[in-house]
Simulated assay, not measured.
Amino acid sequence: MPTSMRSVLPTLFALLLGYALIQVGNTLQGTLLSVRGSLEQFTPTEIGTVAAAFWVGIVLGSLWAGRVIHQVGHTRTFAALAAVASSAALLHLLVISPAVWVAARAVTGFCFAGLFIVVESWLNASVTAQTRGQTLSLYSMTGLVAGIGGQMLLPAGDPQGFRLFCFVAILITLSLVPTALSRATAPAHAVSDTRISLMQLYRQSPFGVVAAVLCGITTSSFFALGPIWAQERGLDTTEIALFMTCGTLGGFVTTWPLGWLSDRMDRRHVIMGTAAMAASILLVLIHAVPLTVPAWLLFIYVAIFGGSVIPTYSIVTAHVNDMVKPGEF
């Protein structure tokens, strides 16, 4: 089994490139749907429900996608789920309806759960506990860089038009190319055919399960409702894109140092420290920053918030994988 970062990265380059393209499309789509939903006069509750549907799909996909990977393999699973996710992106454009968007986002979430499992199980099976935090931090940084690119694509088209939806579909489809053409072979023990038992996982890592739930609530709320909050603060389309980009960029800057730190001390202490920082800056941003503050100051605050909360998931993932057996990655 490879033990150094240098020996692992060349093998997984194609996989990370495909993951990056997926994340560019995913990030653009999330922000686009929030803005477009507001322009279509969807209520905040409807916009929140559309966003929540994605994470319902993530949960369902997390419970079932492992069996699909075990039966047909990592590469075929990646290709099939990416194709479905690409098609679902265009459905939002064809039918402007909260109910249809909820269903499409749930399907998209299911697909992305499988895609994430393909990538994460492959990574976890290729590293040791001594390098897992750094490896997953690199994985997270890849997603964050891609997320920055996705946010910055928002001004490239009119949210009320069709071009941005086409960008999403094209990016997700292109993610198939590097993965399908790669010669890399996934480790045979990366995924078992056993369904995930949340109770068993909780017994193995109670802190990790609770922390993962809270990470999901926090990050999903930020990416779904952050654009709406920025819009209500009077920011235009470009400024909304910059606002969300700064949050992602803050996470990118701190992901590697925090991953490095988590490999050298109790990961739980790192997680609790970042959570405390995120809560503090969020309280300041909501209750202490006046409505007339310049946009650049909002960008600074959200960068600090993103730097505190976004890297936490990769550290939680590393902590949980420290606690489970190889076939359960």
Rank of each mutant, 00 (worst) to 15 (best):
T255A: 09
G234Q: 09
S192T: 11
C215L: 08
F207T: 15
G226R: 01
A184H: 01
A224V: 10
L235D: 03
A190K: 00
P178N: 03
T179L: 13
R183Q: 12
L181E: 11
H189N: 12
Y202Q: 05
G216D: 03
L249N: 03
A241I: 00
R233G: 03
F222E: 06
T237C: 08
S192N: 02
T248H: 11
W229H: 15
V209R: 13
V253N: 00
V209I: 15
A186E: 06
P187Q: 15
R203H: 13
V253Q: 00
T254Y: 00
M199G: 09
M199K: 11
S221Q: 07
D193P: 08
A186R: 02
W256V: 00
A186F: 03
A188V: 00
E232K: 15
F223T: 12
A190W: 01
V177Q: 01
G250P: 05
R195C: 12
F252Y: 13
R183C: 11
I217W: 05
I217S: 04
V177S: 06
C246A: 07
T179N: 08
L242A: 10
T219E: 14
G234P: 04
T245C: 13
L242Q: 15
G247Q: 06
G226Y: 11
L225M: 13
G216Y: 06
T255D: 02
A180M: 14
S205W: 08
G251L: 05
G247V: 01
H189Q: 12
A212W: 07
I196T: 10
G250N: 01
L249I: 04
T237F: 03
T238D: 14
E232P: 12
G247E: 04
S192A: 06
L214S: 08
G208Q: 00
G251D: 08
I217V: 14
T238C: 11
G251I: 06
G251F: 12
M199F: 10
S220N: 05
I196P: 07
D236N: 08
Q200H: 03
G208T: 07
H189W: 04
G226H: 11
